[in-house]
């Protein structure tokens, strides 16, 4: 018997704590933006969501490499959960970005902003991950094809950003440039704590989902060995690996 949830409690506590600190910093410490006012605070939600989502996609691709190299289906499940979570974060990032765009530029959508546009393209690509899985029946082939797709799509992320960025003029405030950016220190601290909180939230959700899946698999295995094959309901046409 293995325990899957090891470290989950610590992770949850760290996440809750960091997010509380981040929220406190956002609302009580970070200064109000001079021209955008209160709505600028969505920046502390939107940018971490988007960054964590993109990192999650690339993370899923790296895990998929693990599956292709080792042929161990556990890697495929990790990759699946990573991409699944990143998709949820990505939709959140897109919606908050749209709200911010409406508030500060007056439109819900702005094509002249390369970051928003390339993010949409990446999201559109990764949104096909599940339909692809779902339409392959053989579980082994499903895992293999999904991994191949995840690797290619993860490699697509940086290339897409280069192409779209070159295609348009800069509108987005370039905040985290290599030269240090133009963010005042208090705002940067708040942003970094928010980013950490969001990354921890992603890690927690990923770990939680992995724990649940592993536990479900183990329950099925135990039921099958104790009560016979008939006691376990067939999985059906599930797109998710389990």
């Amino acid at each position: 018997m293995t325990t899957f949830g090891r470290g989950l409690r610590t992770l949850v506590l760290a996440t809750v704590l960091t997010i509380i600190v981040a929220l406190a910093l956002v609302f009580f410490y970070a200064p109000l933006d001079a021209d955008q006012g209160f709505i600028q605070k969505i920046f502390y939600l939107h940018v971490p969501l988007a960054i964590v989502s993109l990192c999650g996609f690339v993370f899923g691709g790296l895990l998929a490499i693990g599956h292709l190299r080792t042929r161990n289906r556990a890697w495929d499940m990790r990759s699946y959960v990573a991409i699944h979570m990143a998709l949820i974060f990505g939709v959140g990032g897109l919606i908050t970005g749209s709200i911010w765009a409406k508030a500060s530029w007056g439109h819900w959508w702005d094509w002249s902003d390369p970051t928003l546009t390339s993010f949409l393209i990446v999201l559109l690509l990764f949104a096909t991950y599940q339909p692809l899985r779902f339409s392959i029946e053989d579980p082994e082939r499903q895992a293999r094809y999904a991994s191949v797709f995840a690797v290619v799509a993860a490699a697509f992320v940086p290339l897409n950003f280069i192409a779209v960025r070159l295609a348009q003029q800069f509108v987005h405030p370039r905040i985290l440039t290599l030269g240090g950016g133009n963010l005042p220190g208090s705002m940067r601290l708040t942003f970094l704590v928010s980013l950490l909180g969001m990354a921890l939230l992603y890690a927690t959700l990923w770990k939680y989902e992995m724990t649940a899946k592993n536990a479900r698999i183990q329950v099925r295995r135990l039921r099958r060995s104790l009560l016979g094959d008939d006691s376990v309901r067939p999985l059906g046409r599930s797109a998710a690996p389990s």
């Binding site: 096909t128 339909p131 692809l132 029946e137 191949v148 697509f156 897409n160 192409a163």
Partner: peptide, 27 residues
């Protein structure tokens, strides 16, 4: 090659291909 092994191959090929080709299309 990916889509040919799926059940809905006529649907899968364009929905994967289009986003992948967007940078090439832009350029």
């Amino acid at each position: 090659a990916i889509a040919i092994q799926t059940r809905a191959r006529d649907l899968i090929a364009p929905i994967i291909g289009l986003p992948l080709l967007i940078p090439a299309l832009i350029a």
